[in-house]
Nucleic acid binder design. Structure first.
Lengths: 232, 232
DNA sequence: GGCGGCCATTATGAATTCAAAAATGTCAAA
DNA sequence: TTTGACATTTTTGAATTCATAATGGCCGCC
């Protein structure tokens, strides 16, 4: 095989910084590559090549692969290498109800625990997001949207819950960013968020839980539509 | 302490069977050791010693440790080794609401998806469990109880949900088995299960979800009591 | 000309080796 | 006697080496 076309002298070397371990850095780096689509679905991940790219040996890379496999981002077939798992519509159907339930729990807990300052912060984020919605700035809207949901999750004060939610979130992140949401649904989502904010401010846990659940379920439909063009 | 009574010439060597990989076997083995309490809380896990015990090299063991760390069973401090994480009462407070929410989702889905045969199976398990309850056979009761919840989870037909639930389940399994439930609470749990069965048979998803949620929450109190004697 | 088995190559699984950080033990001084 | 600095030992982190299963090409056969 001839030399590769793109020659990068120090592509994205992972420098061993004293505090974190090498394999942890590799995990994060690989996640980024997967999200960026640089490691495409179903393509085999050649260990040697990645090692060269990162400038490390195979040992920490393989440790990282094990971790990512456990997270569900890649699949690890014995003697047959690792490959990025393809996100199927059915996965969306599976993940979103779970995330909805988790957000519902978070919402209930948040209503109990959140400070007035916390509510104020979320309110600020909300109206910032509303502005982006009005202006049709999708990327910014998505970013704020994400942060609001994270804030609610954080306010719940349940690290275990947060961790699991985050892990699931990562799993479908690729699809989520793809989501080319139609205007009508976008308006609806914005209205839902309006209600979510009010309910949180009123500290109506049960209602907020229900709202978040259905909000997620609605989102599920959109996301599924965006990836259903590439069938399993 | 004198030498252990049972001397095992080849203690628990892990033999490389063709299909599964070594590190996966090690993960399972280590989980067992942790659950059995052979690896006590907070004690450092010496790699070399375990390698000798398993008859393997350090590489697959370390890979397994990474995975278990991601599962939350052990903590991995750089250059300071791995140690089994101690189950604190606060962990119970965190985990059970999440499991409750997951079971609620499962209950709703199960009501939609479960076959009549599936209901019949759970009914059989239920009355078997009731018998153990009547006889005061705690271990058997716990076993059946576990299986019923697993059946409901399975009937939901959501692998992602099952996986997360299982992972959480493992995390608190130690505490769960410890649970020396008082008779009064046991009777109450049995009554709750009676209702759970009826609601499932009636396919009332919303109600079943609610029941499972509160059922888990009640259980949480008992479990927490059992580990609160050993404070954080 | 196409298909199937055989051998060389390659990639993965695991063991070993090397390096570096942390734990331990020793000895001296306050 | 206690404390603190230093040297030694131990343990972990990472690289390298070895073994083995899978991949791919080649040749013979149908």
């Amino acid at each position: 095989m001839p030399a590769p076309v793109t020659i990068d002298p120090a592509p994205e070397k992972i420098v061993p910084n004293g505090q974190s371990t090498l394999h942890e850095d590799v995990v994060n780096k690989l996640r980024e590559l997967i999200f960026d689509g640089q490691l495409a679905d179903e393509t085999r991940i050649p260990e040697k090549q990645l090692c060269a790219r990162f400038g490390i040996s195979r040992t920490p890379l393989r440790e990282a692969l094990k971790v990512l496999a456990r997270e569900g981002l890649i699949s690890l077939l014995p003697h047959r290498g690792a490959r990025v798992v393809k996100l199927k519509p059915s996965d969306i159907d599976e993940v979103f109800p779970v995330m909805g339930a988790l957000e519902a729990v978070a919402g209930e807990a948040a209503c109990r625990n959140i400070s007035e300052e916390g509510i104020a912060e979320i309110r600020a984020l909300h109206y910032q997001m509303a502005l982006h919605h009005t202006r049709g700035e999708r990327a910014d809207y998505f970013r704020l949207n994400q942060r609001i949901h994270e804030k609610i999750m954080e306010a719940a004060g349940n690290p275990t819950l947060s961790q699991i939610y985050k892990s699931l979130s990562l799993r479908i992140r690729r699809a989520r960013y793809m989501a080319n949401i139609p205007q009508q649904r976008w308006d609806q989502a914005m209205a839902e968020h309006e209600l979510i904010l009010q309910t949180l401010a009123a500290r109506d846990g049960a209602k907020l839980g229900q709202l978040l659940k259905t909000h997620l379920l609605n989102k599920s439909e959109v996301v599924k539509a965006t990836i259903s063009d590439s069938p399993p």
